[in-house]
Design a protein around this nucleic acid. Sequence first.
RNA 1: GGCGGGGUAGCCAAGUGGUAAGGCAGGGCUCUGCAAAAGCCUCAUUCGUCGGUUCGAUUCCGACCCUCGCCUCCA
Length: 472
Amino acid sequence: MGLKLFNTLSRSLQEFAPLAPPQVGMYCCGPTVYDFAHIGNWRTFVFADLVRRALEFKNFQVAHVMNITDVEDKIIKGVRQSGTTLRDFTAQYETAFFDDLKTLNCLEPHQKPRATEHIPEIISLVGKLIARGFAYQAADGSVYFSIAQYRGAGCTYGKLLKLNADELRPGERVKSDEYAKESIADFALWKARSPEDGEVFWPSPFGEGRPGWHIECSAMSMKILGPGFDLHLGGEDLVFPHHEDEIAQSEGATGQPFVKYWLHGAHLLVEGKKMSKSLGNFFTLRDLLAKGYTGREIRRLLLSAHYRETFNFTLDGLQGAKMSLARIDECLAKLREIAQSAGRPANPAPDTSNASALGRFGDALDDDLNVSAAWGVVFEWVGDLNRRMAENAMSPDGAAAALAVWEKMDSVLGIGTKSGPEIPPEISALLESRQAARREKNFKRADEIRGELQAKGWVIEDTAKGPKLKRI
RNA sequence: GGCGGGGUAGCCAAGUGGUAAGGCAGGGCUCUGCAAAAGCCUCAUUCGUCGGUUCGAUUCCGACCCUCGCCUCCA
């Protein structure tokens, strides 16, 4: 069974067949670095990471590109307000972004191009569009893409979305008379320098100015991945206008198909409502870390629902995600213990579940990255292993085989294996004195020490093989 | 107004024309001196409402109700 993905271009599930297998060129619209990324942004980036990992699981060789939008209206506003330079302003958020990406255990993209470092490519692309008659310079000095010219040449504007360009209604925030463009639907490729831009401008054949928002992705993706490539990802809100405009610019300039598969991740709600600062449900990754949750717990939650479904992110859910990971961690810790032991199981049972679990896991991914079903496979497998271990029917070889299966599954899930905590001397001394008290049947004292340990953030679990310490 | 997602147990969330995965919470049990964020078991006669097609529908069709999103800030 091959990998099937939902392509926004065809609005249908398609067998994934890259242009030059096993190579896959994948571009993901990255952050606009004007603030810390929020949990909604992270859902999209974790989704992109899932796509990459699933492709690698299927033995594709992925070239993963994620751009950094480091020049744009909100950034310029921030630069002006903070009185710093463009680079200083964006650097702090860019650094934070990649720190957060790592916290969520997302694989680092192979290339992370910045818009400001591709001004020549952008200018060249705009020049090409002007030369082909698809762009024009307006009275305000800005260069716009002409949708009328593009469609006049037989090209389709509206490939990703059923949209009639003639019926576009101007949005509330856009006053059509503010622009010198010929048609309301035309979009800026190059924005002429204005006083508010401060020092943020570049020289160009069309005059001083800066790139429009859409053109950078076309310029950078085609420079790195070629004029036509396999996969382009982003949040669902980017379908229109951003991605539609990318297609128009890119295909308008090259005359060839731009991207074969477009994948879009759905948004999330927080506590059932659209995230907003006024509702108090607006979380950055850092906000959640400050509440004591870890990156892997947040990742687990973000990956619990199918990427094309709106997902309801809740703190209760995050707690549940944390607990569910503990279930996996416990199982893996026991497996590691058995794998390292030399003992023979009392009731050895033949292993049949590993291969089947891995197979069903792969099938779930093949089905448009059905990660919920994949988790279902994981937890059924964990239950099966737990039962066998409880019956003392797990051999060291069997445990090692199970751990190898986990490695493979986790190469996609990316939650890692939690290593045993570092136990400070003070804590192990307390544990030892509790053991001494227990040996003397002084259970009152033993329970006092247990309470003391708990107050210090450690919980004791007495097992047949002795006490275990866990961090709360 | 145009276009597009959804409504499955207390919560989150898969799924299928043939009788509902998984996780969390809850309940029971086991191990334990007692415990435990440990393990096992259990937990939806039912899938928004009403009709239709069918031997059979949660799944297909129609209507309706509710909800979320996009229509040039947006992941």
